Computed example of a mutant assay.
Amino acid sequence: MDTKPGGASGMTLGILAIIWFFGVPLCLWQSLVAGLGSPAGNRAEMDAWVTAAAVIFTVVPILAAGICAFTGRVVRAWIFGLVATVCVGLVLAGLYRAERQAESRRPPPPLPSGYCAEFSGGDSDCPGG
């Protein structure tokens, strides 16, 4: 790639910007449509669109920072690097939040075999008690 502003690297950065600004909202819109398309919602399709949005959201600034660093655009490389860092942080925070919510919805582990609970006010049927 050349370092001229109108060269192939500049065109690549423009294409990446278009993909980033239009791809992420389009993927999120498709996720919303997939969720509203049926009564129960198509969870697998929704998750696929959200994953695609997260990939575009994080990968495009990383690629742009790499292109800028490779072509000697130092200030733009720093800007895209900071944007990429924020985007990755937001995606990781969302994944952490989703995992915490999934953990709170898990059923408690089953009781061990042979478990015997004593109840107050009654006879104990437990062995040894």
Rank of each mutant, 00 (worst) to 15 (best):
M1W: 06
D2A: 09
T3M: 01
G6W: 08
G7Y: 01
S9M: 02
S9P: 03
M11W: 11
L13D: 06
I15W: 12
A17M: 06
A17H: 07
I18P: 03
W20H: 13
W20F: 15
F21A: 11
G23N: 04
G23V: 05
V24M: 07
P25G: 07
P25Q: 04
C27T: 02
L28F: 10
S31P: 04
L32V: 09
V33E: 15
G35Y: 06
P39W: 12
A40Y: 06
R43V: 13
A44Q: 13
E45V: 11
D47T: 04
A48M: 13
W49R: 05
V50C: 10
A53Q: 05
A53M: 01
A54G: 11
V55M: 12
V60I: 15
V60Y: 08
I62F: 03
L63I: 08
A64P: 01
C68P: 00
C68V: 01
C68E: 00
C68M: 00
A69M: 08
G72S: 05
R73H: 09
V75Y: 12
R76P: 00
W78L: 14
I79T: 09
L82D: 14
V83S: 02
V83D: 07
T85Y: 07
T85F: 13
V86P: 09
V86K: 12
C87M: 13
G89D: 13
L90F: 11
L90E: 13
L92S: 11
A93R: 08
G94V: 00
L95G: 11
A98G: 02
E99I: 04
R100Q: 15
Q101S: 10
E103D: 14
R105Y: 04
R105S: 07
R105P: 09
P107E: 14
P109S: 14
L111K: 12
P112C: 06
C116E: 12
A117Q: 15
G122P: 05
G122D: 11
S124M: 02
P127A: 02
G128L: 04
G129Y: 07
